[in-house]
Simulated scan of single mutants.
Amino acid sequence: MSVPPYHVGMSDEITADQVRQELEDVEAELAELRRLEGDAQARRGQDTDSSEGYIEPEEIATELTGIAENEAIIDTLEQRRERLQERLKSLG
């Protein structure tokens, strides 16, 4: 789901506008992942219409794994955002 860094043709120079665009992309991806995480947290442990109050352990494990993976991606994107912000500062 992550967007690869911009590749700049023959020149290795990346402009401030390119870094800003990549930063905007990371921010949008973070917002979406946080929304999905909130939805998953809200659904966690809820009974389905057909359930009788019992949730299969496998279903719980799958939900928890998905939440943990999402949190790991968010952490990675936050680190990437920090690097981009620093790079943007250095570009002036």
Rank of each mutant, 00 (worst) to 15 (best):
Q41Y: 01
E29N: 14
A40H: 07
S90L: 15
E59N: 09
V3I: 15
L91P: 03
E29D: 13
I14C: 03
I60Y: 01
E32V: 02
A42W: 01
Q41N: 11
R35S: 04
E22P: 07
E52N: 11
V3Y: 00
K89E: 14
P5K: 08
E69P: 01
E82W: 03
D75T: 10
V3N: 02
R34Q: 15
S51Y: 07
D49T: 03
T62R: 12
L30Q: 07
L84A: 08
R43L: 15
S90G: 00
A31D: 14
P5N: 11
R44K: 11
A28D: 08
L88W: 12
L84Q: 09
G45M: 06
D25Y: 00
S11R: 11
E32R: 00
G53P: 03
P4W: 01
P5D: 09
D25V: 08
V19K: 07
E52R: 06
Y54R: 04
R20A: 14
L84P: 04
S51G: 05
Q79R: 12
H7P: 00
G45K: 10
S90K: 15
I73G: 00
R20Y: 05
Q85T: 08
L36T: 08
L30F: 01
E78V: 07
I74M: 04
Q85S: 07
A42M: 06
E82G: 01
T15C: 04
I60W: 00
R81S: 13
A68R: 12
A72K: 12
